[in-house]
Nucleic acid binder design. Structure first.
Lengths: 213, 213
DNA sequence: TCCGCTCTTGACCATTTGATCAAGAATTAA
DNA sequence: TTAATTCTTGATCAAATGGTCAAGAGCGGA
């Protein structure tokens, strides 16, 4: 007997297709409105699917959210992971910063998704931050400290250097509207269509702050 | 006749007292959960008040939110406003950065409130960003550009220098949980009680991300 | 003290929204 | 073709939530 008839663990073509469709839509919606601010209907509508159908693939709203985070995390951390202890420090750090800037520009939704999650206390990825992320950062911090010890770069606290890089690069994705507002909307290069922000319909119609109190 | 009997514009003692109570509670709640994630009940409970009573002072949830933003904005922008064109550039910028760090440490809730608002497209303060904020930043950017023109500081794009300062200083308030998680919870000086984050009860009980997929 | 105004709240309403279910349509393997 | 399985959705439910209302409690000026 070649193989016991396993209870079809394989994933259907339609299944794979729809799950990806959902994850893409969910990333857009969650990053724009946050977890509580997003509705299952919104996500379903964005992928032209009925709500019950969506919930056939992910049984709870939470599950969609977790899946999107998982789906995005690995690639988001890739640049830091690629920091090479053997490489030239300046070249490595430059490459890292460039990669982070590029990611913030190409995928601001991912940046906002994480920003929102952490901003509200990381209810879904708290354990991940204290575990795998901390390990990764500690590892790379050791690399940077090594470079400093050899006199290849200035003496800086590696952890806070990494924080500074995160802060500055992701700022342009997370606070995009503020950057644009302050710079005055003059067209910027590399601008991609669809910034993932709520349309003007979502701006509050009634009272709103326009001047300093 | 000394004065026409105006229809009591004065604010009652109880009124002033309760409004402040509400604004304080609302800042905590809104900054921790975002606008959509916060409920009027939560805010009411936090100041030991019934929901209808709270809505007696602020008729709609939006009104509370706007009021909190107004109440916080002026002081939040004060340090930048205080940047003195006549002062010594290094001293002025140092003072500004220090003030920003201090504010992020002493009032992280305010930082998170704005971060959340902007992250989601600034539905309530969009006009403010394009108007008064832009004017203020442009004004101070001119100051910095002036310093550079006189050769007192390096040639840098003033707007992006300001962005960088904002990004790095506010990072420690906005992404506090991530900073703490990565640094490993070892006690940090100047820590204030109550970080305004959801209690562990709010962590998701079921599935949650703990490892890289 | 007394009267008008402010303050307070329990009960209630309408809407939104996450989730379920049963029944039917589409797909796939034989 | 056919039967089992997967996929899809209209209808519906229960809970959460923003907001209202009427009625009563409390306060302050005369």
């Amino acid at each position: 007997m070649p193989q016991a008839k396993s209870p079809r663990p394989r994933k259907t073509r339609i299944q794979a297709q729809n799950e990806e469709l959902i994850l893409d839509a969910a990333l857009e919606v969650f990053s724009a409105y946050g977890f509580r601010g997003s509705t299952v209907d919104q996500i379903a509508a964005k992928c032209g699917m009925s709500k019950p159908n969506l919930l056939y693939y992910f049984r709870r709203k939470e599950d969609i959210y977790i899946a999107v985070l998982e789906h995005t995390l690995a690639s988001w951390l890739q640049p830091l992971r690629a920091l090479d202890p053997q490489g030239d420090p300046i070249a490595e750090l430059t490459r890292y910063i460039r990669a982070k800037i590029r990611m913030s520009r190409n995928n601001p939704a991912a940046s906002r998704l994480f920003a929102n999650e952490i901003l509200h206390g990381a209810p879904a990825i708290g354990a991940f931050l204290k575990g795998p992320l901390k390990e990764l950062v500690d590892e790379k911090a050791a690399v940077i400290r090594g470079w400093a010890a050899k006199g290849l770069i200035n003496q800086v606290d590696p952890h806070h250097l990494i924080f500074a890089i995160w802060a500055v690069t992701q700022h342009y994705a997370d606070f995009d509207v503020q950057v644009k507002a302050v710079l005055g909307e003059k067209k910027r290069r590399h601008e991609s269509r669809g910034d993932g922000h709520p349309r003007p319909d979502d701006q509050w119609p009634r009272k709103a702050l326009t001047r300093l109190p």
